[in-house]
Design a protein around this nucleic acid. Sequence first.
DNA 1: ATGGTGGGTCACCCA
Length: 259
Amino acid sequence: MRVATWNINSIRLRIELVIEFIQKHNIDVLCLQETKTEDKFFPTSTLAQAGWPHHAFRGEKSYNGVAIISRSPLTQIHYRDWAGRSDCRHISAQIENGPLIHNFYVPAGGDVPDRKVNLKFGHKLDFICEMTRHFTCQKPHNAILVGDLNIAPLAQDVWSSQQLLKVVSHTPVETESLKKLISDGGWFDIVREHFGADEKLYSWWSYRARDWAASNRGRRLDHVWMSHDIAPSVKMVEIKADYRGAEKPSDHVPVIAEL
DNA sequence: ATGGTGGGTCACCCA
């Protein structure tokens, strides 16, 4: 089974790119974030015609939105509100004869890494804290957690750990919170495990760079975690950086894991 | 220290 996660930054603008991706890379289950559309506009028929007829999605106008797109049936579709808001940042589903999948879009957290002056940063920390509580109380089994978690936890997950220490996504309070969520929540970072501790890994490059590939100032914000029982069954992990160079690209690229 | 680009919807929000 091949599972992928991708912050698509508008499903309606990039539906043709999504179809091309899942066909070319033989994806069984695709989890999207930032779909940015209400459920009534979700492109269900286009995806069904392409061979992915099973969908679980939760969107709103203009902002956020998550989706699970699958070749095989989805059951037990659930979503939860986190940090006291119903802003479409989580959905989960059981894959038929497969694992449970959680798909998250964690708040980006604004520009200033101080919850006293920036409410968005407080929201982000509260969101991670609530995830940690949830999974600590309900340890995952036969489960995968994916998504844009908007935190690059390790020094090798950013182009310069020193220069990003005070930049939201790599501040110590964020990176420590995410590591605690992984360990206390019963998860395993299979992407980092697959590539090893030394390799720089990025899944996001800013739109604002003059030349994203030449400067290569990336961050690993998009994650694939597995519960300890199924982590050993990982066969392959790929970060599809070439999608950053697509026509009208998302600023994030897909991450694929094969079980 | 600043502003750079790109998505949404329709004067700005968000990333």
